[in-house]
Each structure stands twice: as structure tokens, then as C-alpha cells.
Simulated assay, not measured.
Amino acid sequence: MKFAITLLAGPQDPAARSALEFARAVIESGHQITRLFFYRDAVQIASHLGVQPQDEQDISLQWREFIAAEQLDAVVCIAAALRRGVLNEPEAARWKKPVANTGAPYDLSGLGQWVDALQTADRAITFGT
């Protein structure tokens, strides 16, 4: 079965962990994830600049490692990212910002990527509100 997963919850929201655990279970069960789409506050998960207290797990790092290890298609909504200061190198240059704070394994793109994922998936799952 092919799953498209969208995450709306930021890194502090328990839904971010639930989504990661679900995604891991999908892969472990032999199913496929056609696309992960990070939207609204979830775009903050793609930032490489967040720092977690030593007694907390780094959900952003865990997502990044999972996506890279499984070679998943992970798209960050560009409009939501720009509003929240999550920029890759081309966008940082475009907006004349001094630093980029996201990159591989994430791609910044539009909401059309989510619509495209819905066309190829058997199931669409959303985490967060």
C-alpha cells in the first residue's frame, strides 16, 4: 500500500512524534511512502538550527535521519516555510537573508506537491491540526 503523509504539527507537538512512529511502521510493514509533506508549523522540523534541551529527544534530527536512511521524498511547503523563516540556500539568496537553515533531505516546494502525492497514494494520512 502507498501512503502520502502530511504533518501540520511543529516539533514540540506530540503529533510530530506520532507521525514519525507511523511512518516508521509503514516502512517496517513493507508498505511505501510516496511523499511526506510538511505544512504549517511542521515546516520548523526541517530547520537545522533548532536546539533541544539535553534531556529531550531531537525530533527534527530523528525525522532528518529517517528520511535520509529511507530515501523518502520529503517536501516542505515553501509558503509556510518562508513565513516561519525556514529557508534553503536559493531562497535565502533570493530574499537576501544571511543564512539558510534547511536543505537535504528536504525540498521546498508548493502545495501542488501534496495534491500530486494524493493522486498516486492509496491512503492519505494527516497528523496535527
Results as ranks from 00 to 15, higher is better:
Met1Trp: 03
Met1Tyr: 02
Met1Cys: 04
Lys2Asn: 09
Thr6Ile: 05
Thr6Pro: 07
Leu7Pro: 04
Gln12Lys: 14
Asp13Glu: 15
Asp13Met: 14
Ala16Trp: 08
Ala16Cys: 14
Ser18Ala: 11
Ser18Arg: 04
Ala19Val: 04
Leu20His: 00
Phe22Cys: 03
Phe22His: 05
Arg24Gln: 10
Ala25Glu: 11
Val26Phe: 06
Ile27Arg: 06
Glu28Val: 06
Glu28Asp: 07
Gly30Thr: 06
His31Lys: 07
Gln32Ala: 08
Ile33Val: 10
Thr34Trp: 04
Thr34Arg: 04
Thr34Ser: 12
Leu36Ile: 09
Leu36Ser: 01
Tyr39His: 11
Arg40Phe: 12
Arg40Gly: 11
Asp41Ile: 05
Ala42Val: 09
Gln44Ala: 12
Ile45Arg: 08
Ala46Arg: 11
Ala46Phe: 11
Ser47Asp: 15
Pro53Asn: 02
Pro53Ile: 03
Asp55Thr: 00
Asp55Ser: 02
Asp55Phe: 01
Asp55Cys: 03
Glu56Val: 01
Gln57Met: 00
Arg64Met: 05
Arg64Tyr: 00
Phe66Tyr: 07
Ile67Ser: 04
Ile67His: 00
Ala69Gln: 12
Glu70Gly: 08
Gln71Ser: 13
Ala74Gly: 02
Val76Ala: 12
Ile78Tyr: 14
Ile78Asn: 15
Ala80Val: 14
Ala81Met: 13
Ala81Asn: 13
Ala81Gly: 14
Arg83Ile: 11
Arg83Glu: 15
Gly85Ile: 12
Val86Asp: 14
Leu87Met: 15
Lys96Ala: 12
Lys96Met: 11
Lys97Gly: 09
Val99Arg: 10
Ala100Asp: 03
Thr102Leu: 01
Thr102Arg: 05
Ala104Ile: 07
Tyr106Asn: 02
Leu108Thr: 02
Ser109Asn: 11
Gly110Ser: 05
Leu111Asp: 02
Leu111Ile: 04
Gly112Trp: 06
Trp114Thr: 01
Trp114Gln: 01
Val115Gln: 06
Asp116Trp: 05
Ala117Val: 05
Ala117Ile: 06
Thr120Glu: 15
Ala121Phe: 10
Ala124Leu: 07
Thr126Ser: 07
Phe127Gln: 03
Gly128Ile: 04
Gly128Arg: 03
